[in-house]
Design a protein around this nucleic acid. Structure first.
Lengths: 237, 237
DNA sequence: GCACTTCTGTTTACGTTATACGCAGCTGTA
DNA sequence: TACAGCTGCGTATAACGTAAACAGAAGTGC
């Protein structure tokens, strides 16, 4: 904790240096975070232990605590690192295409590093890439007649939409191979009288045959943006 | 694992009995789950250990493994227990009010037991209350011209919306007391030149003064339902 | 009524985890 | 040059989930 009330590692991520006394530092926060991302990519979030990350860097687990005061902080920084290029928007785009690009930027990060969704959100956004994404979203919404609160709600919902899609793709899709079994299990277990619509759904190939996940997210995103567009045009009159 | 390929505890939740040999069972799955919910309510998900749940019931930790083969299964059942009354819809309601009620049913569960959002989704829905909720949603959407895939996408998005709202309310709202500090911290840390819109947002009271969370969710929900209504009327011609 | 089987709760133990503590040495400043 | 403070590192600790083995209880078949 420092003057800002934020953990020192977060400040370090923003480039705040600490007084340089003592021996040269053997590691850096950036190296630790990238090593942790490598481990998580290879072995998942369950395989990510401080020892494992330290082994990747050739040091001991406790050395990392010189840079990060708890594992949660490392997770927060890992989560931020994943969204390095999620905030890039083609300049001059209207709000709808800009928001679409921002949403797909999130999806890109989630698809590349699916473990990200398992990291608990530990508070309001404070890391550089997260705030860059927020800034880009606010810039895109600046010309619209939405109130400040509505802009924030819009962006919170947008990122939540992406996170939700990634969660489903990761956790349900992981067991996607047993989807045929899934339908069979439901048919055995459910009392058909109480679940008529669900039984009808099992007969279609919707449950077993998964669409390309991008199609599903694009659909959800378009529903939301349609609703938002309706509000914007209504307020523009 | 049994014939359905599902864990025995899940089948037990559906009322499948096992052959009754050996001593009388001292506990029941339902008692274990409710005890675990009590513990999680009191001490959060981090404070929920098998020993802690067992202590709540006056037995030892290993006893629980006669009913649940892993902690994850217990978590799944806890998550299901929270949504006991989320699937209740006033009969005869049109699709929009029915979906609204279903969404608020989720929110009710999340608000009462915020730790639910931290439980990872371990697969497609298989527990009774989750499937009841799904069935109610499919029933509400039955009169609409949406395709089967679109109905599923709609309900997946609806539950994701609620989950997202709960996640934000829980993780960000937990640190809500330090929200004034948050704005101050950002002002200190961010380079203003790169974050003009965010700085402007900090001057409003949107970041610090949090609305009643229900307002925010209602807004998000209405945006989505507006977009869905547009699609439905377009398809109805 | 009795052996056998099956299921019960419990005990013990193991492997991992995050991380608190303490030490020895390096380095920038006075 | 002295020293204060920070460095990396090894060790130690407490808690966790759960595998394996065990003694006893309750049904089943003869």
């Amino acid at each position: 904790m420092t003057e800002t009330g934020l953990p020192a590692s977060i400040e370090a991520a923003w480039g705040v240096q600490r007084p340089a006394r003592g021996p040269k530092r053997a590691l850096s926060l950036a190296r630790i975070v990238t090593a942790a991302v490598v481990v998580a990519d290879a072995e998942g979030l369950d395989g990510l232990s401080m020892s494992r990350v330290a082994a990747e860097l050739g040091t001991s687990a406790m050395s990392l605590y010189r840079y990060v005061s708890a594992k949660d902080e490392l997770l927060t920084l890992m989560s931020d690192a994943v969204f390095g290029d999620a905030a890039e928007v083609t300049p001059g785009a209207d709000w709808r295409t800009a928001l679409t690009e921002l949403a797909w930027g999130c999806i890109r990060g989630y698809r590349a590093h699916p473990w990200t969704v398992r990291i608990p959100i530990s508070g309001p956004p404070v890391t550089p890439n997260q705030l860059r994404w927020l800034e880009a979203g606010l810039a895109a919404l600046a010309p619209t007649p939405l109130t400040a609160a509505e802009k924030m709600s819009t962006l919170l919902m947008l990122s939540g939409l992406a996170r939700n899609d990634a969660t489903l793709a990761h956790d349900i899709g992981a067991t996607g191979d047993m989807m045929p079994n899934y339908a069979k299990a439901l048919r055995h277990l459910l009392p058909q009288a109480e679940f008529p619509h669900l039984f009808a759904m099992l007969d279609t190939d919707v449950m077993t045959q998964d669409d390309h996940p991008d199609v599903e997210f694009a659909w959800s995103l378009d529903r939301f943006l349609d609703g938002l567009a309706a509000l914007i045009t209504a307020k523009s009159q």
